[in-house]
Design a protein around this nucleic acid. Structure first.
Length: 865
DNA sequence: GCGGTGGTACTTTTT
DNA sequence: GTACCACCGC
């Protein structure tokens, strides 16, 4: 293994360079100034295992990057001797950039800074043959994986409806997260899939080997197996990596843990007695572990000092991000968790002017969206607050819809973070499949994807024949196709088409070494008819897809060849997005981790949604604790303002349910919280206990500031709700949503509510807000009346709604001013396509779309056709 | 090869 | 309620 020839001997700790540094060191180097004592300890404790428990906003990334700079500056190691792993490409990019700021170009010499997966590939490419792969193996994405599994399930003669490939893929993922190979999986799992669980897993792995392919899990599994089976290889890495740094350690799964342990610990009976130690430093926050559901083991961080005896544990608790109220609220909340190492965040700069955390109540999700929209405009107007500094963090993505709808009608710029990503779009995947076939003619999955895209008359029947032929001879599909077109086995028409296609691929492959890769890529898409397919497509998405294809080619410029671009794409499924327009961000709590905003809106704090019922049902207490950590993450994203909302009615799976406030609200400390009086809103929790949780201070009006809850309006409203919810209960049943936490409607508490069916009495309470008839209808029918109102503009998002076009689809005109369009104009809309303006009202247009029918849209969303 | 229909699922998401 | 998928019929 002379892979490491470039690795010069490490500067030893006692070495001259290091001592010189130390001697000079009374005066701390620049990069250390500005660190607080704990941060500095975390940076300077270079030797031995170190666990840095870095609370939210305590300068975690700074510590990590400064530590690396320090190791380099003091001559403890060369850049190539540092292994630094992150979870996401984004984190890796940021780290690299920040190290660059500290040490300059030296960061370029850090080949081992990257995600677990990218480093995994790197290792695997060097030793591919040791696990039965060729070094140019392909990395499958989830799509390919599922198609492959499906084939295997069918090959086993299992009903793929009863045994969906998706489910198997999830199990597979779980096994690989735990580092289990087919022989290691639990008996129960082995018996899954009609007793074929283990068999299928083994088949799947074999199939991957013949395809010369890996899935994401294998990028960790293979290196682990490789290290175990080849101690000499592992020893080489031991010699190489002097310093190992791990970001977000609380998110590591078992496989990643095993991988790290192999790299960080020499076997005890090592011959290299005098070998220098390997120093591992893990940075994380147990309170921000929110990925248990995808295999992360908080336990890894909780157990660190047992795994690495003598570990120094350094706590970073000084928070530089948020106000005292926000920290107070978040800390008090998270203190309800039992399984934690315990940290208390504090700030040095409390300010009496700081706003407390707000809790607001609303009637339903539409009202919630409206009120938040108003709050946003208010901040914008009165405080000159940038939209870019505000975010709405939701528990589940279906919540986004209400905000999108509302903001579109308001003309408020927004951006949805984390929708379907660039490389996941159909057209991009198709294009990539073409490129893969050209670069790796054995990539059957890619070939299957595009044989008949665009439609060229090579349907299932033909493909099956080619498949059988290929199987029989154990050759790839393209090769099989190439042979078959010379025989009589196919009917003339498909034979000719297939012959042409095979010839195309052959030709493109030959151009691989001579043409410029961007030109070749374009040529492939043109000659295959793929571009044309979208040009001929009259649907509204087609122009966007063509644009995406162009963007794909453009982004290839940065790479030197098609294969190197494909590798990048396989590992980096996100694409950078612009932040140039001022817009409110809407995203899930999960995707908010690591971000910060001046103002954060946290809607949907209701039992069943947050904490999510499923987390409770499936995860029990630890599920609840993870939900609580999610809440903690949410609150700590805010620098200055956190505004929490809950509503009393929400539609889940199509049914309107009455909901009760989240238990997390009760876990917030009163001292740091303001309960807002509902002014434009009605939030009703007058009656009833917190089923099983005793009284909540949200149950009564008492806790509400300047309570309006004694007023007649409030009482009527309450009555209306009791009547409504009472009826609602019948329809709800035990459908999983309600679980044991169904709101107990307390007629006793509000006797007047009964019989009257509440509605009419409540009307005045709602009038002007809900529309005078809404409550009557709701309460009167007694169940499942959607508190429907409003125009239902923008029925919005199937995939490809605003979410997909993200950032481009923010309304351009915010102020309702005269429209630049007039009736009769032809216009184009990113989502609805072409249409004719039927009417104009300020900046709102009524447009008859050719495809989508008549819609009302803001003129900022369309352009002249 | 398509388009309509019916059945089903429906938290969170990276690589 | 709705979105997606799979299947069936033309």
């Amino acid at each position: 293994m002379s892979d490491f020839n470039e690795s010069a001997p490490a500067p030893r700790q006692g070495g001259i360079a290091a001592r010189a540094m130390a001697a000079r060191g009374a005066k701390a180097p620049d990069y250390l100034s500005g660190l607080n004592p704990e941060q500095r300890a975390a940076v300077e404790t270079t030797e031995g295992p170190v666990l840095v428990l870095a609370g939210a906003g305590t300068g975690k990334t700074r510590v990590l990057t400064t530590r690396i700079a320090h190791i380099l500056a003091t001559g403890h190691a060369w850049p190539s001797q540092i292994l630094a792993v992150t979870f996401t490409n984004k984190a890796a990019r940021e780290m690299k950039q920040r190290i660059g700021l500290l040490v300059g170009g030296e960061v370029e010499g850090m080949p081992w800074l990257g995600t677990f997966h990218s480093i995994g590939v790197k290792i695997l490419r060097r030793h591919a043959e040791l696990v039965g792969l060729k070094p140019n193996f392909t990395i499958l994405d989830t799509d390919d994986q599922i198609r492959l599994i499906k084939q295997l399930i069918q090959a086993e003669n299992l009903d793929d409806k009863r045994w969906p490939a998706r489910t198997f893929a999830t199990m597979l993922d779980g096994w690989k997260n735990k580092g289990l190979s087919p022989k290691d999986i639990p008996e129960g799992d082995a018996r899954a899939f009609a007793g074929k669980g283990r068999q299928l897993y083994a088949d799947y792995q074999n199939r991957l080997l013949t395809l010369n392919a890996c899935d994401f899990g294998d990028l960790l599994m293979h290196p682990i197996a490789l290290f175990k089976a080849n101690p000499d290889v592992l020893a080489d890495y031991h010699r190489r990596f002097r310093y190992i740094l791990v970001d977000e350690y609380q998110d590591t799964n078992v496989a990643q843990y095993l991988w790290l342990r192999l790299l960080a610990q020499r076997p005890r009976e090592t011959s290299a007695k005098n070998a220098p130690p390997i120093n591992i430093c893990c940075v994380g926050d147990d309170d921000q572990s929110i990925y248990g559901w995808r295999g992360a083991e908080v336990d890894n961080i909780l157990r660190f000092d047992k795994d690495f005896p003598g570990a120094a544990v350094i706590r970073l608790e000084r928070n530089y991000r948020s106000t005292g109220h926000i920290l107070g609220a978040a800390s008090h909340l998270i203190a309800h968790n039992e399984d934690r190492l315990g940290k208390t965040l504090f700030t040095d700069t409390p300010d009496p002017e700081d706003p407390k955390v707000e809790v607001n109540a609303g009637w339903d999700s539409e009202e919630e969206a409206r009120a938040i929209g108003e709050a946003i405009e208010d901040l914008q107007r009165r405080e000159d607050h940038n939209l870019n500094d505000m975010a709405i963090l939701v528990r589940a993505s279906f919540q986004m819809r209400a905000f999108e709808d509302r903001f579109v009608t308001m003309g408020l710029n927004y951006r949805v973070i984390g929708g379907p990503r660039f490389y996941e779009r159909m057209e991009i995947r198709d294009a990539l499949a073409y490129f893969r076939c050209v670069c790796q003619p054995a990539d059957d999955l890619a070939f299957e994807r595009i044989v008949n895209t665009p439609k060229r008359g090579l349907g299932d029947a033909t493909v099956r024949l080619v498949h059988d032929y290929a199987r029989g001879r154990e050759i790839p599909l393209i090769a099989a196709a190439g042979e078959m077109v010379e025989t009589e086995e196919l009917k003339p028409k498909p034979r000719n088409t297939l012959r042409a296609l095979v010839a195309d691929f052959r030709r493109w492959s030959e151009l691989l070494s001579t043409s410029k890769h961007t030109e070749l890529a374009e040529q492939i898409l043109d000659e295959s008819g793929y571009t044309e397919m979208w040009q001929n497509d009259r649907s509204a998405e087609a122009p966007g897809r063509l644009e995406n294809l162009k963007e794909l080619i453009r982004s290839m410029e940065a790479y030197e060849s098609l294969p190197s671009f494909l590798e990048h794409v396989a590992l980096v499924m996100d694409a950078e997005q612009e932040n140039e327009v001022d817009a409110v961000s809407i995203m899930t709590l999960h995707s908010a981790k690591g971000l910060e905003f001046e103002t954060v809106f946290l809607p949907g704090w209701e039992e069943g949604l947050f904490p999510h019922q499923r987390a409770l049902d499936e995860g029990g207490r630890s599920g609840l604790e993870e939900e609580r950590r999610l809440a903690y993450v949410g609150i700590t994203r805010a620098k200055r303002r956190a505004k929490i909302w809950f509503v009393s009615n929400r539609r889940i799976h199509g049914l309107w349910q009455s909901t009760i406030p989240s238990r997390f609200l009760d876990e917030l400390p009163e001292a740091h919280v303001d309960v807002m009086e509902a002014n434009t809103s009605y939030g009703g929790y007058g009656a009833g206990g917190f089923g099983g949780y005793g009284a909540s201070r949200w149950d009564g009006g008492a806790a509400f500031k300047q309570s309006a809850y004694g007023t007649p309006g409030w009482k009527r409203a309450q009555a209306a709700q009791a009547g409504f919810a009472g009826g609602d209960q019948q329809t709800r049943g035990g459908d999983g949503w309600s679980g044991g936490r169904t709101r107990e409607i307390s007629y006793e508490a509000e006797p007047g509510a009964r019989g009257k069916s509440g509605g009419t009495g409540g009307a005045s309470g709602f009038a002007g807000r809900m529309g005078a008839d809404a409550p009557r209808e709701r309460a009167g029918r007694g169940h499942n009346q959607p508190p429907k109102k409003g125009l239902g503009l923008y029925s919005s998002s199937k995939r490809g709604g605003p979410r997909e076009i993200e950032g481009e689809l923010v309304a351009k005109s915010v102020a309702p001013e005269a429209s630049r369009f007039a009736a009769g104009d032809r216009v184009f809309h990113l989502k609805f396509g072409n249409g004719t303006v039927a009417g104009v009202e300020g900046n709102k247009l009524t447009v008859d779309f050719d495809k989508a029918g008549q819609k009302r849209v803001l003129d900022g969303f369309v352009e002249p056709a």
